[in-house]
Design a protein around this nucleic acid. Structure first.
Lengths: 107, 107
DNA sequence: AAGGAATATTCCTGTCAAGGAATATTGAAG
DNA sequence: CTTCAATATTCCTTGACAGGAATATTCCTT
């Protein structure tokens, strides 16, 4: 698991940017406006997200369109797989326990 | 999505602690030993993980057993759901594209 | 060529977090 | 009650990072 992903998402404004870009690519100005950020800060946060490969840029003349990149999130997803096993096991144990209760209803 | 989870995991040693605890609860000393950390740093990192609810403690006399807690990871999992939709869509699009190619093999 | 819009970068400052070293706490055993 | 083992906490220093303000860059328009 690449820690850069966690670091990038550990900042409130950057997390909001990611969630905003989930609905489609946006320009720096649009992001700054919707999140009530000053333009330089928006740029800086986007730079960090870019280095974490969480977004990509596509220059369109004066403007720059930032789009969400799924790879780091997919990596997170894959990383979580190890833990899903664990919490499923625990759930299974609970399940077995409940079935035990069912099979001996009045004890 | 709780940012505290990302912040806690954004530190290499803490991520390693979490991955270590995936195999079962451990004591502070065991964690420090296996990760080549000094005991105070291990304690401090565990404190952060505790505040992020990523681990729980169970005092056993002199020792303290730390165990992984799944809730924050499950929350991450739920948060990722929004994005799984997106990358599945894109995969579907690619899929359609490949089928188009198949239906017009020699063009 | 000049001006303006969109964006990036730089400099500065304050805050926060991490590691090292030392020390405090807690519990068990003699 | 003293000692020792396991763990937590404190103090200190250093480095990273975020925001503000100002400035640089790039590209379009006229």
């Amino acid at each position: 698991m690449d820690i850069g992903t966690f670091s990038a998402l550990a900042e409130p404004n950057r997390l909001r940017i990611v969630e905003l870009l989930a609905h489609g690519p946006l320009t720096v100005g649009e992001i700054a406006e919707r999140l009530n950020l000053r333009q330089p800060q928006a740029s800086k946060h986007l730079r960090v997200l870019l280095e974490a490969r969480l977004v990509s840029v596509h220059a369109d003349a004066n403007r720059r369109n930032y789009a969400l990149q799924m790879e780091p999130l997919q990596e997170m997803d894959a990383w979580l797989n190890n833990y899903r096993r664990i919490w499923n096991e625990r759930f299974d144990n609970l399940d077995h326990y409940l079935q035990e209760l069912q099979s001996k209803p009045e004890q």
